[in-house]
Write a protein that binds this DNA or RNA. Structure first.
Lengths: 348, 348
DNA sequence: CTGTTAGCGCCTTCAA
DNA sequence: TTGAAGGCGCTAACAG
């Protein structure tokens, strides 16, 4: 790899001059600029960001930690953040924590060692030692929590409005005439999940429906586990729910597997709605009703806040952004109205 | 951020000693080691990778360029590569080219500036100027092509065995009794797509079926476009195909949308099979038959090759790895046998 | 405008 | 086993 010195020699100028034409920080005469640029092309020179960063102590790099970018929601968040970063000429490093607290700690440390200028964090579902994140913030590292927000710790954060979003989903189920609505949640160590559960309860109460503890099922983020839990509940003695509301995507996937395994169809045998898109929900037959989070925007806004902090152009107080979810009404939440592929008006 | 010097001062030793305990390259007495480690914790010291890299000219970082990590196939590849990297204590930077040749060029340049030690490249679908990649290789940058392999350029590469994979899918359709099998491809600028088309043709020929040009539809990677193309074909006058084979995931998605829009059901009205998983294919009703690529393994193996090259422990000749795909037979490819949610034996 | 130079933080000889 | 010192490639003064 050629260095700036080799470029300078070839162009017959001083290294400072080369640096000036590269950064554009100091005006350089047209003649020299051309010579320098010719030399750069000739040598196929690529400025060493490492050396630059060491000198300027700026990396123009952001990091983002997600639980698992194999879950469709997260790549969208990442793409959003990437766009915002790119607009300001920053790059983004994305890594997976696998929802492990210790792995998350390592990653945080790695990112700090790499001297990223800010971190976007989707907390691991495993209870995160608060010291891990307070340490980061205390050390003056810019941090914005995304999607999953810590409980009693003030940080910049961007996520969806969980309570209204869940209410919206459950309200819809109620409006379709369902009375025994069960919900299955992800890990309640996540504030989101507790909030969504709250939304579920509020919607029921507001409609004058009883909140039945037997209809609140505690799941997790592994579809197989969730499927097993649901199968148990659905096959148990006693009255069945006539609708199920899942509070997140992987959990919703588990419900679908359980329904299939139990030979239950939506919405004929049981109605269903879930948080999060399943990528192709509209193609399911029947198509699935979902509470859709603005994933891309969440990532975008979060990165913007980070960038503002870096530029020092942000207020002191913690910034809290809650974006509204939207409801895509499709077939699975309806009453027993058999739909067929392509039946007119079959999907919203 | 504390520096190694501050750690040394606090521990009462020289910076060299601190470096020794961190890298483990030189033995240090137990007593000093403890003092140093205490100081590190005390200061919450994180070694500056930037400085280290500048000195050692090693970043322990790999880069991977994918078209769009929002397509489910790619996150799996990335996770595979990430695992292989992590085993050797490397990190991975993943970026998206959006299938744009120029963006890919920028990204390549960025990665070089960041001094990654090797690059995994899934080429953009837009025809890539061969100089772009030959330049990289010529400059001595380690590069492994993943999934999408250049045409007439010798590089290390890892991908699926396209021809047999496509043959397998089409063979299956044939074995289910379908005679007029259409195929819809992605951009033929991609060698993969041409190979898969070849597999389609070979399967037909081997079965003594005619290769009908009217049944070879040229699509792309945008589901909406593909849906439009399919709708046109399906609504045109003349005999319809009784099966469709899609040569990749996004294209397959487009087919499904078209079928829905045309009110056609699989497999009753038309059979269907596609390359690539749609994340939840097994939950579709009817469940979708897919040719599954070992995405994780592809990423893993590719990163391993890169790492071998970096360590210099690889032969000189270009390494070419082709992994077999597998066929998941489900409902959509069958003959007109109506299936129901949970019907025993309904899905493979 | 152009050239010179002092570090950025760290690792690695090399000498003690 | 420990400590001292040079220099990786670059940018940002500063001097010319």
């Amino acid at each position: 790899m050629p260095t700036i010195k080799e470029v300078a020699d070839l162009a017959g100028v001083a290294v400072g001059t080369v640096s000036h034409v590269i950064t554009g920080s100091v005006p350089v005469s047209e003649a020299l600029r051309r010579k320098v640029q010719a030399a750069i092309r000739e040598l196929d020179y690529h400025p060493n960001h490492i050396a630059r960063s060491l000198k300027t102590s700026k990396t123009r790099t952001l990091g983002i930690i997600v639980p698992d970018m194999t879950i469709p929601y997260f790549p969208r968040v990442i793409r959003g953040a990437e766009s915002a970063a790119r607009e300001r000429n920053y790059s983004l490093i994305a890594v997976n924590s696998d929802d492990s607290g210790s792995r998350q700690g390592e990653l945080l440390s790695l990112l700090r060692s790499q001297r990223v200028e800010g971190i976007l964090l989707v907390m691991a579902a495993a209870p995160t030692p608060m010291t891990q994140i307070s340490g980061i913030v205390g050390a003056g590292i810019r941090l914005v929590c995304v999607d999953r927000i810590p409980d009693r710790f003030q940080v910049d954060s961007v996520s969806v409005e969980d309570v209204p979003a869940a209410e919206m989903g459950v309200d819809h189920l109620i409006s379709m005439g369902h009375l025994r609505i069960a919900t299955i949640t992800g890990p309640l160590s996540l504030k989101n999940e507790r909030q969504r559960l709250l939304g579920y309860e509020q919607a029921l109460k507001r409609a004058g429906l009883p909140v039945n503890r037997e209809l609140i099922w505690h799941g997790n983020l592994r579809p197989e586990d969730v499927a097993a839990i649901c199968r148990d509940r659905l096959q148990a003695a006693g009255p069945k729910p006539d609708a199920i509301f899942a509070t997140n995507g992987p959990t919703g996937l588990g419900v679908l597997r359980a329904l299939r395994d139990c030979g239950l169809r939506t919405p004929d045998d049981i109605a269903f709605a879930t948080f999060d898109e399943l990528t192709v929900d509209d193609l399911f037959l029947p198509a699935i009703t979902t509470v859709v989070q603005p994933a891309y925007d969440i990532g975008f806004r979060a990165a913007e806040i980070l960038l503002q902090r870096i530029e020092g152009s942000a207020e002191d107080a913690a910034i809290t952004i809650r974006l509204p979810a939207s409801l895509k009404v499709r077939d699975s939440s309806g009453l027993s109205t058999r739909r067929h592929f392509g039946a007119p008006g079959g999907a919203a």
